[in-house]
């Protein structure tokens, strides 16, 4: 039998890690969604230039930078020394995902905004400078879209990598996490676009979302298997996730409501067995949001590294 008594005074880490609250999961969710929207909209533009006329694509190009900005607001809210925010840009630390993330934003904003401007050029009849810029960049829309697909992917992966580089936190320290969060972000984006799109496009977006949910389910399975089959704290952390305090949330909210039920309903919708309901993409969004909360919280409450 082992009795351990520690007199450490530090509510941030004792008895378990307690540094990130609602802000970071929200930031991770919104970041993933923004990345996903950028990937899907740019991808569709690449696939078919005429997509810029598509309602869902148009909204996605616009929403991506807006949503990321909201996410950034939550990130700022989480900083303990907010007036030092600019310090992210006096250094580039190539081993720090957060540093990468900060600098990636500097590329994200010009390219994603540029794409949105081109898409919405008809509505912009002011600021000659902007008009001129649109004029110059418009012929290169496809190239911009290529860059944006990559940036979107980068942002999406980053939301997971941010957590997964912490070797000290066994639940987070999984290389699958970046992949999982990326796929979850894109499928959420597809769900959002499914809600926005014209009724004629529903079927297309349903198919896209189905495909992405399947991939996400695959990544989630890999994540669980990877954890369960590893040793020590990493094994225990995964067992904690799937059978501990957060197990009900994980299985019901994320796996069932976020993956299985939407996948089932969307399949039935595509097969015209049931009618389309906006509730289905909403479930995907809720599942994706709860995934961030569950992983961030469970990873903190099981933070012991041994």
């Amino acid at each position: 039998m082992t009795e351990i008594i520690s007199n450490k005074l530090n509510p941030y880490v004792y008895p378990n890690l307690d540094i990130w609250h609602y802000e970071i999961p929200l930031y991770l969710f919104l970041g993933g969604l923004a990345g996903g929207l950028l990937i899907l909209s740019s991808g569709m533009i690449l696939f078919k230039k005429e997509s810029i006329e598509n309602k869902a694509v148009r909204w996605a190009t616009l929403l991506s930078p807006v949503i990321l900005s909201i996410g950034m607001l939550f990130l700022l809210l989480d900083l303990e020394f907010k007036i030092h925010f600019w310090r992210f840009y006096t250094a580039f630390i190539f081993t720090s995902p957060m540093s990468w993330g900060a600098w990636m934003l500097l590329i994200f904003y010009p390219f994603s905004v540029m794409q949105a401007l081109i898409v919405f050029k008809d509505y912009i009849n002011f600021y000659p400078f902007i008009l001129k810029t649109i004029k110059i960049t418009e012929p290169h829309l496809q190239k911009i879209a290529v860059v944006n697909v990559h940036i979107g992917t980068g942002i999406g992966v980053y939301t997971g990598v941010l957590l997964s580089t912490f070797y000290a936190r066994p639940l987070w320290n999984s290389s699958v996490l970046g992949f999982l969060f990326l796929l979850s972000g894109i499928s959420t984006a597809a769900a959002v676009m499914l809600i926005i799109c014209n009724s004629g496009d529903k079927r297309t977006f349903l198919k896209v979302d189905m495909y992405l949910i399947s991939l996400e389910g695959f990544a989630a399975t890999l994540f669980i298997i990877g954890g369960v089959t590893s040793a020590g704290a990493f094994h225990d952390a995964m067992v904690y996730l799937i059978s501990g305090t957060y197990a009900a949330w994980f299985w019901v909210l994320f796996i069932l409501c976020g993956l299985i039920i939407p996948l089932l309903l969307e399949t039935l919708e595509v097969l015209n067995k049931v009618r389309y309901s906006p509730l289905v993409p909403l479930l995907v969004i809720i599942g994706s949001l709860s995934l961030r909360f569950i992983i961030v919280n469970a990873g903190q409450s099981f933070s012991t590294f041994y």
Binding site: T90, A91, F92, I93, F94, T95, S96, S99
Partner: peptide, 8 residues
Amino acid sequence: LGGGFVLS
């Protein structure tokens, strides 16, 4: 190395 540069 910490890796990277710091402007300070």
